[in-house]
Design a protein around this nucleic acid. Structure first.
Length: 850
RNA sequence: GCGGGUGUGGCGGAAUGGUAGACGCCGGGGACUUAAAAUCCCCUGAUCCUAUAGAUCGUGUGGGUUCGAGUCCCACCACCCGCACCA
């Protein structure tokens, strides 16, 4: 730790004086004042326009980290700014409290997941309070509260009623370490998103939410999300994966029909084989033959990781079956192929080697015919194929009646003929799958269903909700504690009264976060939410969180909102009007041979080099990457706040880096922020009631800053707002006392109040105010003061700057040209050359062309 | 492979087609002080130079459009992210 940091500790013990702001006293004082006054309690019963500012609620892992601080500081500035602008602001906080880590803790530390979660929430809430966030804590809840998940169960039953929920046997992603099913979205590179274990395929009875019913709607809706990052919209679009093509049947030589799906019906005359997935019924029917069985086994072995797929060789097995081409009637071989996926399309394809790279590689290997049916130009119909497929655009060739047609027309023509002939139809295929939500875990929302031998699957009657989790569970053995609990699952069938069993699966935690924003907006006891309140607050005006939720959470939340609107709960389609994905907080890494990674607090920086505090050896300074426990490059917010106060940390979070990019944490940076807190404190102290007189240039800068900072905040360009505040601060410091200077000081006080609320309140009170600054309005600006009366004109010759001159605003082109030519520097540059043309941009520049 | 993003001083980054490097950090020099901390002031892209002046170069690379390009267009390079045997 650097000497300055040590000095800070002493500083905090020095009483607050005119020249020193003491956050250790002020922070708590104002946090209590806001609490007591209910300053940030949202009230829907007034005429003010409403604004809902929301940050993605945290998982209560134990400690707040810098990423949270950055995320919530941005939201906090927006919430406080909106309030200053006359909006009634809803800015709530809660806890995404179900999930695996609680169960892992239960296994490792022998604590109940609920107790572990509750104590984490308590600790993290205290941390958030210390940062002074303008949150409406009256609406706080945790998703593990029975009231919350009980309402979730009710919504689940409503969705079941409406046919949006399915129970079916399905091949699922099974995580052998967490011993649970995972959604496709939770499988990353073939591994479980939490455990990192290689995911296996299993067939299980599962509950599904029919998100695919909304595929088209979810895709179309992206078009309306004007204030979402294009990147996120694209990721969702790709994930939903709409593709249009033709589904048709091949007549097989064994008498059957094989449905295939293709997006390129225009290339049908280039088809030279047909291939099915290893687990396709046609392949399975042949599994009696030992050779086929062996091949199918071989196909299953291949890894599913990206690297494995990249290098995986295309394998095929040629069956004795042939398929008849629908137009030429030619028999084509049917193969079993490892690259055909059972769960996309029909699990079978027509192979067109000339115009699909995979088919090309496959055909080359198994010596199947490769014909050109698309060419760049009709005259190139007989051009030989190269050593790659040609998947691009062109015209149809060697294709009978399609010859000469564009790819697009060719597609339409084949689809039309297939439909007219009754052997196929144009279809849409989606990449998106239904959302499997069953989890064989304890710490989640119990699925409110009962299995009865006589009545089948029976929903739990709503008056029996919530179905709560049993408290007495053990985590000694792997698997689902609900399943092996002695009594919990045994119950009476609500229909026949006979003996029955509760569903022991719980809901995927992503269901908890799919509607929490609705519960924040209204919290009646007897219903999940109130439609009138929803109408007042929704949609969320600003939603801020990490890019890692671009698909999972954000797609699910959009789906739930649509589904609930679909069943008539309210009239909101999109939950989040604007979305902002903030960058990560990063830090340099330190590594020392055998000792491995060192944390920043174990390292002393000296110029270019770094040394271990313990032992003094030189340490290797590594890349600046996301703060993570494993690399030890973390900085604990609590320690920083204790040293520098909440406002310095908040200011750091907003400074320098644009909010969507990564923010490198540095000791020097936070010290600079602390210095600025103190600098402002001294400036605020110079507010002087007795000062008189006008300082027009300073007043003008203040008015301009009021407008510019507001624009920057609204654009979430906090780094620019910060820079402008620095500029106005410097100008104000230099100015002599005047009424204008007092105005500038007050403007600064108000402008920094969303960012450094404690300092601002303290200074505000010291200036004699008895109301809270948090309730004050954004400063007014005078339009007349925005306009300069003198401007600086750049004078260029040969495209280079030669001189600058000061001219009255609005000076005529002729005057500017004359002034420019009169410049000694310009004349020297011209050196007698003939002026051919002079370009004058009023109030900006003069460019002389010779 | 497909899709997207980024590239500007030592560092983070500013810049409606119009003075590139605002603002912050680092660094250097100075003032104040017995000394230190804190604070304040000045300098700080590179090169040349006859040095309070001036010139040239400079926003990943190469072209183009323009009176004028970090910004627009074309081609390329590097890095980062997402998806991926999706027919």
């Amino acid at each position: 730790m650097r000497p300055l940091a040590l000095a800070m500790k002493r500083v905090s013990e020095i009483p607050m004086t005119d020249t020193r702001f003491d956050p250790s006293k002020a922070d708590g004082r104002w946090q209590r004042a806001w609490d007591k006054a209910g300053t940030f309690t949202a009230d829907s019963n007034n005429e003010k326009p409403k604004s809902y500012v929301l940050e993605m609620f945290p998982y209560p892992s134990g400690r707040i980290h810098m990423g949270h601080v950055r995320n919530y500081t941005m939201g906090d500035v927006l919430a406080r700014y909106k309030k200053m602008r006359g909006f009634e602001v809803l800015h709530p906080m809660g806890w995404d409290a179900f999930g695996m880590p609680a169960e892992n803790a239960a296994m490792e530390k022998k604590v109940h997941p609920g107790a572990w979660t509750r104590s984490n929430i308590e600790a993290m809430k205290a941390q958030l309070k210390r940062i002074g966030f303008a949150l409406d804590w009256t609406r706080e809840f945790a998703t593990c509260d029975p009231e919350y998940y009980g309402h979730e169960q009710a919504l689940f039953l409503d969705m079941y009623e409406a046919g949006l929920i399915d129970r079916r046997s399905s091949e699922v992603n099974w995580d052998p370490v967490d011993m649970t099913v995972l959604a496709n979205e939770q499988v990353i590179d073939g591994k479980g998103w939490r455990s990192g274990a290689e995911v296996e395929k299993r067939k299980l009875d599962q509950w599904f939410l029919k998100i695919t019913d909304f595929a088209e709607d979810l895709l179309d809706g992206l078009g309306d999300l004007k204030d979402w990052p294009d990147k996120v919209k694209l990721m969702q679009e790709n994930w939903i994966g709409k593709s249009q093509g033709l589904e048709f049947g091949f007549s097989l030589s064994n008498g059957g029909t094989l449905p295939v799906y293709t997006t390129r019906p225009d290339t049908i005359f280039g088809a030279s084989f047909v291939a099915v997935a290893a687990d396709h019924p046609v392949a399975q029917a042949l599994a009696g033959e030992p050779e086929v069985a062996a091949f199918i086994e071989e196909c299953k072995k291949g890894g599913t990781t990206a690297a494995a797929l990249e290098t995986a060789e295309k394998l095929g097995y040629r069956t004795s079956i042939t398929a008849k081409h629908p137009f030429t009637g030619e028999p084509m071989p049917l193969l079993i192929a490892n690259f055909v996926l059972m769960d996309y399309g029909t699990g079978a394809i027509m192979g067109v080697p000339g115009h699909d790279q995979r088919d090309f590689e496959f055909a080359t290997k198994y010596e199947l015919p490769i014909t050109r049916v698309i060419a760049r130009d009709f005259s190139e119909a007989s051009a030989p194929m190269g050593d790659e497929a040609e998947p691009g655009d062109g015209v149809c060739v060697n294709s009978d009646f399609l010859d000469g047609m564009s790819v697009e027309d060719g597609k339409a023509e084949i689809i039309k003929r297939a439909e007219d002939g009754g052997w196929g139809e144009g279809t849409t295929v989606w990449r998106l799958r239904d959302w499997g939500i069953s989890r064989q875990r304890y710490w989640g929302t119990p699925i409110p269903f009962i299995h009865c031998d006589a009545c089948g699957i029976v929903p739990v009657p709503k008056d029996q909700l919530p179905v709560t989790l049993p408290e007495d569970v053990d985590f000694e053995t792997p698997g689902n504690p609900l399943e092996r609990h002695a009594t919990w699952k045994h119950c009476a069938c609500p229909k026949c009264g006979g003996e029955a069993r509760r569903e022991t699966d719980t809901l995927d935690t992503f269901t908890n976060s799919s509607w929490y924003f609705l519960r924040f907006a209204s919290q009646p006891d007897d219903a999940p939410f109130d439609a009138d309140e929803i109408a007042k607050w929704m949609p969320v005006e600003h939603y801020i969180g990490g890019i890692e939720h671009a698909i999972l959470h954000l797609l699910y939340a959009r789906f739930w909102t649509r589904a609930l609107a679909h069943i008539g709960k309210f009239d909101v389609k999109e939950p989040f009007a604007s979305l902002f994905t903030q960058g990560m907080v990063t830090h340099e890494t330190y590594r020392l041979g055998e000792r491995g990674w060192l944390s920043p607090s174990e390292v002393r920086i000296d110029g270019e080099k770094a040394f271990a505090l313990e032992g003094g050896e030189e340490v290797e300074r590594g890349r600046v990457i996301k703060m993570s426990k494993s690399k030890k490059n973390v900085v604990d917010p609590d320690n920083i706040i204790e040293q520098y106060g909440a406002d310095a940390v908040r200011w750091f979070m907003l400074s320098d880096s644009p909010p969507e990019r990564d923010l490198p944490w540095s000791e020097a940076g936070i010290e600079g922020c602390y210095r600025f807190v103190q600098r402002l404190w001294r400036l605020f102290d110079q507010f002087d009631d007795s000062a008189a007189g006008e300082d027009k240039p300073l007043a003008r800068r203040a008015h301009q800053a009021i407008v510019a900072v507001a624009e920057d905040i609204e654009a979430l360009s906090f780094n620019k707002a910060v820079a402008r505040i620095y500029e106005l601060t410097a100008a104000t410091e230099k100015a002599a006392p005047s009424e204008s200077r007092n105005f500038a000081i007050r403007a600064l006080l108000h402008m920094v109040s969303p960012m450094m609320p404690h300092l601002a309140e303290e200074a505000h009170a010291k200036m004699g105010a008895d109301a809270l600054l948090a309730d004050a309005a954004w400063p007014e600006h005078d339009k007349a003061m925005l306009v300069e009366d003198e401007v600086t004109i750049a004078v260029q010759h040969k495209g280079k700057l030669r001189d600058t001159l000061t001219a009255p605003k609005g000076a005529s082109k002729e005057d500017l040209e004359a002034m420019a030519l009169a410049s000694e520097k310009v004349q020297r540059s011209l050196d007698g050359a003939e002026v051919r043309k002079v370009i004058v941009v009023p109030d900006r520049l003069v460019n002389i062309v010779t």
